[in-house]
């Protein structure tokens, strides 16, 4: 799939909360300290943060980089599976905060961990059809996990936002995008439940691997490219092993993938995961680089994108906030503070 008119990313921004908990600390509480300390961390939202505030900061960073009039945005679309309001869009709050209202479409997207890339496809369609000059999409989550569940070792918090616009204004121009979607229930959260359920090993081969392989192979076929044609490849990252394994299966060299796997630093940020990795790749990319982005959402599907970085990136990204700054800004918390910040302590 590609639009008739050239479309690309004209600005982007990410956000990661300041607090970190060591996975070994989670292990200490639930399994009596079997793990090594300092191996992997996950970002913990502060007591005054949620998906909305994360999305707002990512959106502001993207707007600063794009340096456009917010009234020219025709869409503000955020994807998440941790909506602070079950009913009432997060996106209207984000759009208000950046001054994009009222002449904009605003909606929340949901598809487990991939609603942000779905919104990206829709934004591409909107800009590519000339319905809009600019459209914002993004993904953000304060990822939920049942206390003690294996998921709790990795669920993090963070998000990223991208502004799509005309190709000639872009820092990265889209070549094509594909989606591969099936009805596969590998991970879900029922209405009214606080934590998601997952099918353990069923979330692997028939779910994550099958869908990403399928979307990426379809995309490469469509544009006549192979793994060697991409400078960097960014995959959804529920943990640090899955993206490296799927990259290997698809034939991508490890060193073109690993720098953008942030799971050991910030955890699995669900809807933010692949998008933060993509932002990190754009932070270090050079003009002419080609970047593959492939998300995965349980339920299940994968969206794949191929972007080519333009000369504009060098100047434009100076106006933004590199993801690296948020990776460096950390304050460690123990399980008790994590439990407090995440509202896991019952007070009534």
């Amino acid at each position: 799939m590609k639009p008739t008119r050239a479309v690309g990313v004209i600005g982007y921004g990410g956000y990661i909360p300041r607090y970190r908990i060591d996975a070994a600390e989670v292990d200490r509480v639930w399994r009596g300290s079997g793990k090594k300390e300092g191996q992997s961390f996950k970002a913990v939202p502060g007591p005054d943060e949620d998906t909305t505030t994360i999305a707002i900061q990512a959106a502001r960073n993207a707007m600063d980089m794009a340096s456009i009039d917010p009234n020219e945005l025709r869409a503000v679309w955020f994807g998440t599976e941790s909506k602070p309001y079950a009913v009432k869009p997060t996106s209207t709050i984000v759009a208000d905060a950046i001054g994009a209202l009222p002449h904009a479409n605003a909606a929340d997207w949901e598809f487990a961990c991939k609603p942000g890339t779905e919104a990206m496809q829709a934004a591409i369609g909107m800009v590519g059809s000339d319905m809009a000059r600019y459209a914002m999409c993004g993904g953000a989550d304060t990822a939920q996990a049942k206390p003690g569940d294996v998921l709790e070792y990795t669920t993090g918090a963070g998000g990223a936002a991208f502004i799509l616009g005309p190709g000639q204004e872009s820092v990265a121009v889209l070549q094509a995008s594909t989606s591969y979607v099936t009805n596969t229930t590998d991970f879900f959260r029922r209405e009214g439940q606080e934590y998601p359920n997952h099918g353990q090993r069923f979330t692997g081969e028939p779910a994550y691997f099958h869908h990403i392989r399928s979307s990426v192979m379809t995309l490469m076929e469509e544009i006549g490219a192979g793994p060697g044609d991409f400078t960097f490849a960014v995959f959804h990252q529920p943990n640090s092993q899955f993206p490296l394994r799927v990259a290997a299966e698809l034939g991508f060299a490890r060193n073109r993938v690993e720098p953008f796997v942030l799971t050991n630093l910030v955890g699995n940020t669900y809807s933010g995961a692949a998008m933060l990795g993509f932002a990190k790749a754009l932070d270090v990319a050079s003009p002419g680089d080609r970047i593959l982005l492939a998300s995965y959402g349980s339920g299940a599907g994968s969206d794949a994108f191929s972007y080519e970085v333009t000369d504009k990136i060098v100047e434009v990204r100076k106006r933004g906030v590199p993801i690296e700054r948020y990776l460096k800004r950390t304050k460690s918390v123990d399980y008790a503070m994590y439990a407090r910040y995440r509202g896991k302590l019952r007070r009534n």
Partner: peptide
């Protein structure tokens, strides 16, 4: 300025998002 949750009215009331301030991010 950053935007944060200032106050939530109980578990089922509106959430107030508003300004707080934070030191600038270190380069």
């Amino acid at each position: 300025m950053v935007t944060r949750r200032i106050l939530a009215h109980g578990d089922d009331g509106p959430i107030i998002y508003a300004y707080k301030f934070t030191p600038e991010l270190a380069g």
